[in-house]
């Protein structure tokens, strides 16, 4: 699905390489955490995948296409296969929730009819079906991020990129966001999420790709944020955050993962049903 091959990337303003000879492969339907300190190259990784940047050397394949060889007029069409979520939501403040989500389909020329149905579905998935007419500034941070997820997912992309989607949110709200991302992942959507959130990474136990100064330092299935059995402050902190905020959600997430394994691909209906279930479980 996604393959980085000896990718190097540096920026004019900095002498250090943002990515240094990075090779990694991500399969369809995987959920990958991209971790590492600030400046380790996580955002560059995502920007390269969006082809907002081009590699200095090395090659990137996404869905069988080599991004370096892609002519620039094809880039917009390529991006329609990729959804994006950011720490700062990036909603349009003068549009309602519905209009924000619909905008993503309008600008790629979908018909009014298709837009209406798809937007409603997307809002149901993120649990905002009843808040379509609100403006973004009337919503909480978590709700705004859910609108952003709906916008990223409304066109059913193959890949969802998330750059610290929980960076501005409190731990409990972050859990809600993670549930939605998990649900989207269950529809065979590949998710790559850059994050600093130790608790989330340690709870979800998904593949972890750790970068440091542009190099791959760890690629671990069912990994945690820091190295296991280490005795760093980070590790202790991890434990503390986990204990305080996430205990109640852990079982439920485990259940969710089992369900995912059973059904390779869920239809849209069962997706919404899955969400309702989740809501009931939490209540």
């Amino acid at each position: 699905m996604i393959k980085f091959e000896n990718v190097c990337k540096s920026y004019k303003s900095s002498r250090n390489k943002a990515l240094n000879d990075l090779s990694v492969e991500i399969l369809k339907g995987e959920f990958v955490f991209l971790v590492g300190p600030s400046g380790s190259g996580k955002t560059t990784f995502l920007r390269l995948m969006l082809r907002e940047e081009r590699t200095d050397s090395g090659r990137i394949w996404v869905g069988g296409r080599e991004l370096g060889a892609m002519s620039s007029w094809k880039v917009p069409y390529y991006r329609r296969n990729i959804g994006c979520v950011f720490q700062d939501f990036r909603l349009l403040p003068n549009k309602t929730v519905r209009q924000n989500v619909a905008f993503a389909l309008e600008v790629i020329g979908r018909s009014r009819h298709v837009i209406d149905t798809k937007v409603s579905q997307a809002l149901e998935i993120v649990g905002l079906g009843n808040k379509g007419n609100r403006l973004p500034n009337e919503l909480s941070g978590g709700e705004q991020q859910r609108v952003a997820i709906a916008r990223a997912f409304v066109n059913r992309p193959l890949i969802l990129l998330a750059d610290e989607p929980t960076g501005n949110l409190d731990p409990a709200t972050s859990q809600g966001i993670m549930r939605i991302l998990d649900k989207i992942n269950r529809t065979e959507t590949t998710i790559i999420m850059a994050t600093h959130d130790v608790g989330i990474v340690n709870t979800m136990r998904r593949r972890v790709i750790q970068l440091d100064r542009g190099s791959l330092v760890r690629d671990q299935q069912r990994g945690i944020y820091g190295l296991e059995e280490s005795d760093t402050i980070e590790e202790r902190l991890t434990g503390a955050v986990k204990a305080v905020t996430l205990n109640s959600d852990e079982d439920e997430l485990l259940k969710g993962r089992k369900r995912r394994r059973q059904t390779a691909e869920l239809s849209h209906k069962s997706l919404i049903a899955g969400f309702d279930e989740d809501l009931e479980e939490t209540e």
Partner: peptide, 13 residues
């Protein structure tokens, strides 16, 4: 802002 979102979701140039 709008332009940035448009580029992100794949609106053509």
């Amino acid at each position: 802002r709008e332009v940035a979102v448009m580029k992100l979701v794949g609106a053509t140039n």
